[in-house]
Simulated scan of single mutants.
Amino acid sequence: MHNLNQEFIIHPVGQGLFYSGKISHKNKVKFRMVFDCGSVTSGAYQSEINIYRDDDFLKYKIIDLLVISHFHQDHVNQIGNLLNGKIKIKKLVMPFLTYEERLFLVLKQFTRDPGQSEDDFFIRFAIDPFGTLNDNLDGNSEVFLIESDPTGPLDRDQISDESRDFNTDNPEKRFEFSFKNKEPITPSENPTTSNTDVKGYKVFDSENGIVCAEEAVLMEFIFYRRKVTENERAYYEEVVRLFYEEFKIDSKLPKDELLNEIIETVKEITSGKDIESIFLKAKRKTKIKGIKLEDSNTTALSLLHRNMPAILKLGRD
């Protein structure tokens, strides 16, 4: 019998992405992760989600690490389905985005397919991710928002390869994911609109995420995000300003009211041309160059993960 088993799967969900992984030790799942969960291919995702929601998952109701790469419908629209039944997220990793950037991404998708406005979960999640996951984030949850580090790439020496002794006999004790260096986000930086209680941290993409059993580092997770320029940010903000102006939305409404007003407005959009004209006006106003509308997604996180030497010892114990 093997003491350790790792399983990482790219689920066949058509146009979209659903990538999952788990580590089991002595027949007990100690760590679960999901990287995106979405699809726009009709009927391609439900059976894969049902398979993933196995007996152990439904019994313990835990995802140790959920990673959101970016806010496109085919990457996130099935997260609500996956988490149904008050599954708790221990650690959530996603790009650090301003509110304007997230609304920009929602509007961008409607230039091509206004029919997506029927997807209430996608709209709410993209605009207000913390609030939408309110039932899945408790007082012990942590959210890490990844920013591009302007000082340089990852320092490989910051993770020790030392193999330590550790006790994993407690079947209820799970492996923990975290970052060594994290900075609490301020209220003004908080990217949520309706859940202000979640513990959020800003992390540079030069920081390693690590999975540990006690003090032993079992796995390393490396994230990368391209830096957003000031010109790009000005473009996003102008798109949002014009959207408010075109659809007569009062941006000074209380947060909850503003959120509902935006969602209801977006859901009523029937023509992508209405939104496309806003993007073209914003492009002329900000005089931004080198960005094609279909390529203007600067939010995506790339992910690399690898085993560390300590996990080999765990497999031999």
Results as ranks from 00 to 15, higher is better:
I23Q: 01
A126N: 04
D64S: 15
N81H: 12
R306I: 13
H75P: 00
Q73M: 11
P12E: 15
T298W: 08
Q158H: 05
K202R: 15
T168F: 07
S39F: 08
L303Q: 06
Y201M: 04
K248G: 05
V76I: 13
V217E: 02
P129Y: 02
N181M: 04
S69M: 02
D120L: 15
Y45R: 01
L83F: 09
V239H: 05
Y60Q: 10
R174C: 05
K281R: 15
K59E: 14
E101F: 06
G80R: 01
I63R: 00
Q78V: 06
L4I: 02
N5I: 08
I123H: 04
D149M: 05
V266M: 04
S277L: 14
P309D: 07
V29R: 00
N77S: 14
L82R: 01
P150S: 12
L65A: 07
T298K: 05
A282L: 10
G16S: 10
K267I: 08
V93E: 05
E232P: 00
K26F: 03
F110T: 14
F166V: 09
N5E: 12
K292M: 11
D55N: 14
D56E: 12
L105W: 04
E276A: 15
H2N: 11
V40R: 01
V217R: 01
H70F: 07
K252N: 13
L303N: 04
F130A: 01
S296T: 09
T299N: 11
I222N: 11
Y201P: 01
I23R: 00
P254L: 12
I210F: 01
V228F: 05
I79Y: 00
V143T: 12
S251E: 14
N297Y: 08
G38Y: 00
K292R: 14
L314I: 11
D128W: 08
F247A: 09
G209Y: 02
V266F: 04
E276G: 10
P254E: 14
V240K: 02
F110L: 15
Q109H: 10
D295H: 13
K86Q: 14
A44D: 05
L66D: 00
F144S: 07
G131S: 06
N190K: 06
G80T: 04
E232T: 15
L259Q: 05
E257M: 12
P184G: 03
F8M: 03
P254N: 11
K255W: 03
K86H: 13
P171K: 07
E268G: 12
I249M: 07
L92D: 04
F204R: 04
I87C: 08
F279Q: 05
N27P: 00
P153Q: 06
T111S: 10
H75G: 01
I262D: 08
G315M: 03
T132S: 10
L145N: 04
F121N: 01
F96A: 14
F221H: 01
L242Y: 11
R32E: 03
V266G: 03
G315A: 09
F221W: 10
R226M: 06
V266D: 01
D55G: 08
T168V: 11
H25M: 09
L253I: 10
L293T: 13
L242V: 12
F35W: 02
